[in-house]
């Protein structure tokens, strides 16, 4: 159901939610307005250069810090098709699943992927294909419970289903 193909934006360990979306902009819940500032404190060019389907690849503890759901929301609103990291901070992980931003943990592949590589990601199978280097990786699968939330289109949609 969910596949994405695009270019890689590569970041280091501990990308925090303050750099994903600085709190000085959090005086609005409007995702489109917030998305204009996505990543701006560590990558001023990101918003200019990102295209629908592109992929963020990062190191350990992606999304650490604040619980602001605005962080996965702006990444999703910018059109990013998937975030791949060695590990995710737990609130970001939870928020991404809840709002339907595809994320994958793949500690092995991150160091072998470079900025601007072209990737193909099949979110259902966890297969990550680096078209530029012609290498293939398998991300860790989600537990069924979480797969259900993702397949329903997020937490609230999945709760709605349970009630039906």
């Amino acid at each position: 159901m969910m596949k994405t193909q695009g270019n890689v934006f590569k970041y280091q360990d501990n990308v925090d939610t303050d750099v994903i979306i600085p709190a000085r902009y959090l005086n609005t819940p409007d995702a489109n307005e917030l998305a204009l500032h996505c990543m701006e404190d560590i990558d001023k060019e990101f918003v200019k250069n990102v295209s629908v389907g592109d992929i963020i690849v990062a190191g350990q503890n992606f999304g650490c810090g604040s619980s602001r759901e605005h962080a996965p929301l702006v990444i999703k609103t910018c059109g990013v098709g998937c975030v791949i990291a060695k590990s995710f901070a737990r609130i970001f992980y939870r928020n991404a699943i809840n709002i339907g931003l595809p994320i994958l943990e793949c500690p092995d592949c991150v160091d072998e992927i470079s900025a601007n590589d072209e990737l193909f990601v099949d979110f259902d199978t966890g297969i990550i294909k680096n078209i530029t280097s012609n290498k293939e990786y398998l991300a860790q699968p989600f537990p069924d419970f979480i797969q259900n939330i993702i397949k329903s289109g997020g937490l609230l949609a999945s709760i709605g289903k349970d009630n039906d």
Binding site: S67, P72, I91, R94, N95, N98, F145, L155, L156, I159
Partner: peptide, 18 residues
């Protein structure tokens, strides 16, 4: 524990969280 806004919305409605 800290969560995001969608968990808050679900929690306000159901009184439950996973």
């Amino acid at each position: 524990t800290g969560v995001g806004s969608t968990d808050m919305a679900a929690g306000m409605s159901s009184g439950m969280a996973w």
